[in-house]
Simulated assay, not measured.
Amino acid sequence: MKNTMKNLTIIAVVVLTTFSFKPIEKVKKEIKVASSKIVWKGYKVTGSHEGTIAIKSAFLTFEDEKLSGGEFVIDMTTISTTDLQGEYKGKLDGHLKSDDFFGVDTHPTAVLIFKDVHATGKNSYTVTGDLTIKGKTNPITFTISIYGSKATAALKVDRLKYDVRYASKSFFDGLKDKVIYDEFDLVADLEF
């Protein structure tokens, strides 16, 4: 009788313990591409240029309301300058789409896949992911902040890792004031 009571007690504890733990809920939230945007900014000796790139598709993954993953597909054919107009805008947009820069005919999309996410505060995270541009994949670390159904991320990209060498002083001598710096910024304002 003692063994039966002991076994029943153990079974009761195991059952109660099993049902008392809530399973981790994983939720995939699609990014609303029409109301989200990515702004780029590139720097050169004599100033800078900036513009936008459209998101083709994207989602963020949450576990128990904390960011745990994500994936972005960027439509590189939409790269456009916003600080120029007319002929100069057309020339720079065309040059950015050419093989000197992003080669969008061959590589129409860029992809970012989150690999590791760490909370750094109540609404902020450090993300390490794989970024693929022009068919080349490299790790990248960046910050993202989430407030309700909105998020903001900031990335600094070294273009040389993706074979974008045009006017880089790392590869070409004598460029003087024609140098374009190797890093460019991406800032994403997202809604999901």
Rank of each mutant, 00 (worst) to 15 (best):
K2F: 15
K2I: 14
N3E: 13
L8E: 01
I10R: 04
V13I: 15
V13P: 01
V15T: 07
F19W: 08
F19G: 04
P23A: 08
I24Y: 02
E25Y: 10
K29P: 03
I31K: 04
I38A: 11
I38P: 06
V39A: 05
Y43Q: 10
K44N: 09
G47I: 07
G47E: 11
E50M: 08
I53S: 03
A54F: 03
K56P: 03
E63T: 08
E65D: 15
L67Y: 02
S68Q: 02
S68H: 01
I74W: 06
D75Q: 10
T77C: 04
I79R: 05
I79A: 04
T81H: 09
L84I: 08
L84T: 04
Q85W: 02
D93N: 14
H95L: 13
L96S: 05
T106S: 13
L112A: 00
K115V: 01
T120M: 08
T120A: 09
S124N: 14
G129C: 04
T132Y: 09
I133H: 01
I133G: 02
K134F: 05
K136F: 09
K136V: 14
K136N: 13
T137H: 03
N138M: 11
P139I: 08
I140E: 13
I144K: 02
G148K: 13
T152H: 12
L155M: 15
K156A: 11
K156Y: 01
V157Y: 00
D158S: 07
R159P: 06
L160D: 15
V164L: 09
R165W: 04
A167T: 01
K169I: 10
D173R: 01
G174N: 07
G174A: 10
D177C: 02
D177K: 03
V179N: 00
V179E: 06
F184H: 09
F184E: 09
F184P: 04
L186T: 10
A188P: 02
